[in-house]
């Protein structure tokens, strides 16, 4: 659109260009993929791998340094999973929820902390991987698969009883819920990250120095919260699938 094109032209600060919908396209076979997302998510994955390897390479009884930090992170994730899934069920889901949390968290913060925009690409620009709807949709669909797997492996085909459990009248809504869950998960994460980036970009456009700093700090905060929310919701959905509606399995 013309208005927005002019907005992009006006902004000449390379640190915060407003580029929405511009991508660094790669062609793999018949698929066109967004290369900038791949590059940044590989970097994020690399950072996570290096951190976990460095933490586990030389394990001490009394942790210090990076091992200490990673143990703290693990404990945090375990508590998160335990809060959602309960004492008995949480253990097998710690890796999944932890991976979601760490990947989203590091992605979001990399978008806010690493000056990606100094690196020139032929088209588009590097940004947080979660800044692209495809990444968040992939994560949300993984969550959907995870809770279906959780429910099916726990209850077999009886899992589908929960669609008609209180009353079959709610069947359409129950089915709709399976679609709205990944939709809301992905849009929430994507929207928050893009909103952060846009707000910071607009502020830098207006006042390039110092004034955007509080907004950037707020962005760091919200992106951390969003990672937490994504992981929490994944845990909640899995718990819902395992437990069933009535909560009749509580007594034991």
């Amino acid at each position: 659109m013309e208005i927005l094109d002019s907005l992009i032209v006006v902004n000449s600060y390379t640190l915060a260009e407003l580029e929405v919908g511009e991508h660094f396209l790669w062609k793999i076979g018949n698929f066109t993929v967004h290369g900038q997302v791949f590059l940044t998510s590989w970097i994020v994955i690399g950072v996570l791998l290096i951190a976990s390897l460095a933490a586990t390479r030389n394990i001490q009884m009394v942790p210090s340094g990076i091992q200490n930090f990673m143990e703290y992170a693990l404990e945090f994730i375990r508590d998160l999973a335990k809060n959602q899934l309960g004492e008995k069920e949480y253990r097998p889901w710690v890796p999944f929820i932890g991976t979601l949390f760490l990947f989203i968290f590091v992605s979001n913060w990399s978008g806010a902390l690493v000056p990606w925009k100094l690196i020139e690409l032929p088209s588009g620009e590097l940004a947080a991987p979660t800044n692209d709807i495809n990444t968040t949709v992939a994560l949300a669909l993984l969550t959907s698969l995870a809770y279906f797997y959780a429910g099916l492996s726990r209850k077999g085909l009886g899992y589908f009883r929960r669609y008609i459990e209180p009353t079959p009248i709610l069947l359409p809504i129950a089915i709709l819920e399976d679609f709205t869950k990944p939709l809301s998960l992905s849009f929430r994460l994507f929207g928050n990250i893009v909103a952060d980036e846009l707000v910071v970009a607009v502020f830098v456009l207006l006042v390039p120095l110092f004034v955007p700093l509080p907004v950037m700090a707020l962005g760091l905060f919200t992106s951390a919260i969003q990672a937490l929310i994504f992981a929490t919701l994944a845990g909640a959905y899995i718990h819902e699938a395992i437990e069933g509606h009535g909560g009749e399995e509580h007594e034991e």
Partner: peptide
């Protein structure tokens, strides 16, 4: 946590 949930409704509008 709940504020972030409510915030996401606005974010849907933003999307």
């Amino acid at each position: 946590l709940t504020l972030a949930f409510m915030e996401s409704l606005t974010i849907y509008g933003l999307v």
